[in-house]
Simulated scan of single mutants.
Amino acid sequence: MKTIAIIPARGGSKRLPQKNIKVLGEYPLLVHSILYAQSNNKIIDKIYVTTDDEEVKKTALEFGAKVIDRPQLLSGDLEPTVSALKHVLQSIEGEVENVVLLQPTNPLRPQNLLDDAFEIYKKENCDSLFTVSRNHQKFGKIADKKFIPFNYTIGQRSQDLEPIFFENGLLYITRASLILNDIIISENAFPFEVNHIFASVDIDDQNDFEYAAYLLSKNK
């Protein structure tokens, strides 16, 4: 069994320019995911960064990852992540069974997360697994200037809500054969629950970045 990690880190970011190499704590944002993969080398055989950016490439190589140059055709704002993952698989030699997707915008992960998730992935014979977290908020929509509750009734206590979950982006494990068919999360994907403060981090703008920096400083 060969398992690789892929970290997609293109250069274009409008809300937070060059965010993948912006320093978070001691390291560029991208590097946190590289180091996490390296710390799980009992599971991950090789680490690949796919990018269209020379500075990202330089940083990834400096910290020991292999780099796959991503074509501009696969680097647009609307291009799905699976295209970049598929391109990596088509660009490397040797058979790959599993892909661990680590998004650089989710740089903080519980250290034992991959160990625990991969054990379930194997035990359940999953074709894919992704991390989710429970949300305790009261959701609704606005229609005709009226608020319509979605997951509760007016007056219901928060602790009595029916559990509802969100995809937190911390970790994905998928069979390479699925990715080659343009799928990351299958219909039978295992939702691995992670209720940790790190699951609230997904860096898109400066406020997200500062929040991540705060959590990092508090959880060293």
Score class of each variant (00 low, 15 high):
Ala5Val: 01
Ala5Met: 10
Pro8Phe: 02
Arg10Ile: 14
Gly11Glu: 06
Ser13Phe: 10
Arg15Asn: 13
Pro17Glu: 09
Gln18Tyr: 11
Asn20Cys: 09
Lys22Glu: 07
Gly25Phe: 02
Pro28Glu: 03
Val31His: 00
Ile43Tyr: 05
Asp45Leu: 10
Lys46Ser: 15
Ile47Pro: 03
Tyr48Pro: 03
Thr50Tyr: 06
Thr50Lys: 09
Asp52Thr: 00
Asp52His: 04
Asp53Lys: 05
Glu54Arg: 15
Leu61Tyr: 07
Glu62Met: 15
Val67Arg: 06
Ile68Asn: 01
Arg70Ala: 13
Gln72Trp: 11
Leu74Gln: 08
Gly76Ile: 00
Leu78Val: 05
Glu79Thr: 11
Glu79Arg: 15
Thr81Cys: 14
Ser83Gly: 12
Leu85Lys: 06
His87Glu: 11
Val88Trp: 06
Val88Lys: 08
Leu89His: 09
Glu97Pro: 05
Leu102Met: 11
Gln103Lys: 14
Gln111Leu: 15
Asn112Gln: 14
Leu114Gly: 07
Phe118Asp: 03
Ile120Thr: 01
Glu124Trp: 08
Asn125Thr: 01
Asn125His: 14
Asp127Val: 03
Asp127Ser: 12
Ser128Tyr: 04
Leu129Gly: 02
His136Ala: 13
Gln137Glu: 13
Lys138Val: 00
Gly140Met: 06
Lys141Arg: 10
Asp144Gly: 07
Lys146Gln: 12
Phe147His: 03
Pro149Ala: 07
Ile154His: 07
Ser158Asn: 12
Asp160Gly: 06
Glu162Lys: 12
Pro163Met: 10
Phe166His: 09
Leu170Val: 00
Ala176Met: 08
Ile179Glu: 02
Asn181Lys: 15
Asp182Met: 10
Ser186Gln: 09
Ser186Arg: 10
Glu187Lys: 13
Phe190Trp: 08
Phe190Gly: 02
Phe192Trp: 07
Glu193Asn: 10
Val194Ser: 04
Ile197Gly: 06
Ala199Asn: 09
Ser200Pro: 01
Ser200Asn: 10
Asp202Asn: 14
Ile203Arg: 07
Asp205Val: 01
Gln206Trp: 13
Gln206Pro: 04
Gln206Thr: 05
Asn207Glu: 13
Tyr211Met: 12
Ala213Asp: 14
Tyr214Val: 08
Tyr214His: 13
Leu215Ser: 05
Leu216Pro: 00
Leu216Gly: 02
Ser217Asn: 13
Ser217Tyr: 06
